[in-house]
């Protein structure tokens, strides 16, 4: 198990190198640099911009630029932002990362707490009213784009009814302690639900079909033949078997949440990694774009590793050695 984990982490290294080459290559392949596409001060001599490019190393051969960037990244130096003058990429990301992590965890919690119980209920009572409602909601959740649902939620629940704030992370008046957390949670409700919508819908469907399958299996019949009660059968015998494939999907969900956050955060003007990412793209702030893309890659790799580890904890047939 430990050996397996270490091996998996070691495999990360070549994967990350590949990923960094792709990220860097894409960034360089895109036309323009931080000085193009802007309304530049016409009184400044174009020669000055050229000097700046030279100073930033933008005119060096691409492999040289890659080597410089990659070796800096390897030592933990993410470079400096070209747009936010002089600010390090690291500090920019650090400021936003926690917000995104809170949002992701909150949304994941909603997904799990809603999808699994409803999925189980649907499997226990297929074709009941709640099952049909859940199915309808499930298909709607999958069909409605995140940003649209977010906009409708803002319009109805925030502007019309005024139940939840439409943007930001805190109101700003309650700083520190319990009050701040309450405000943060309050601000996370709409973006959290928006972000978790598609996941909730699909996990509900997965849970329902897994549970239906498991309840038909021979070992459930054995448990009934042993005289075990309904509660035991549902929560002990069936749940642990039905949850196994869900765990694998959760690993992917980790990455999906982060990339989903890019759009959701934009809709709710939520100051996280997502908004930073979009803004950096708009500003052609390559050091930030590349750092975030690489971080997303790492997050997805870690998510899959965690899923594999959980998998082996739940299913005794899976042993990594």
């Amino acid at each position: 198990m430990y050996a397996y984990t270490i091996r998996r982490v070691l495999i990360f290294i070549p994967m990350l190198i590949m990923l960094s080459i792709i990220v860097f290559g894409l960034a360089k392949a895109a036309p323009g640099d931080p000085f193009t596409g802007k309304i530049l001060d016409p009184t400044v001599d174009p020669e000055v911009f050229e000097q700046q490019r030279e100073a930033l190393g933008l005119n060096d051969p691409i492999p040289v630029q890659y080597a410089r960037w990659a070796s800096a990244m390897a030592t933990g130096d993410f470079g400096t932002s070209m747009y936010y003058k002089g600010k390090s990429v690291q500090s920019l990301i650090q400021e936003r990362a926690l917000n995104t992590i809170y949002l992701g965890l909150f949304s994941l919690a909603i997904t799990i707490l809603v999808a699994i119980p409803i999925g189980m209920y649907s499997a226990r009572n297929p074709y009941s009213l709640l099952d049909y409602s859940a199915t309808t909601f499930g298909f709607m959740g999958l069909a409605i784009p995140n940003f649209f649902f977010g906009l409708v939620a803002i319009y109805l629940l925030s502007i019309k009814l005024g139940w939840f704030p439409a943007q930001g992370t805190i109101s700003g008046t309650e700083i520190g302690g319990w009050e701040e957390w309450k405000s943060r949670l309050h601000h996370m409700v709409l973006p959290g639900i928006t972000l978790g919508l598609a996941g909730t819908a699909s996990y509900m469907r997965y849970m329902r079909s897994e549970m239906l399958d498991v309840l038909k299996s021979d070992y459930i019949r054995t448990a009934r033949a042993k005289g075990m009660g309904e509660r035991n059968i549902l929560y002990k015998q069936a749940l642990r078997n039905a949850i196994i494939p869900i765990i694998t999907l959760m690993g992917f969900e980790f990455g999906a949440l982060l990339s989903g956050a890019i759009i959701t955060e934009q809709v709710f003007n939520y100051p996280g990694i997502g908004t930073l990412f979009i803004n950096s793209i708009m500003n052609r702030d390559y050091p930030v774009i590349m750092a975030i893309t690489l971080l997303l890659g790492v997050a997805i790799l870690i998510g899959n590793l965690l899923a594999d580890i959980f998998y082996s904890l739940v299913d005794p047939r899976i042993r990594y050695d």
Binding site: S217, D218, Y219, R221, T222, A223, A225, K236, Q237, R240, N241, I244, V314, D315, P316, R317
Partner: peptide, 13 residues
Amino acid sequence: FQEPMTALNPVYT
């Protein structure tokens, strides 16, 4: 039952 391969719950001892 007939099928001992599937009649026991795979995740419990």
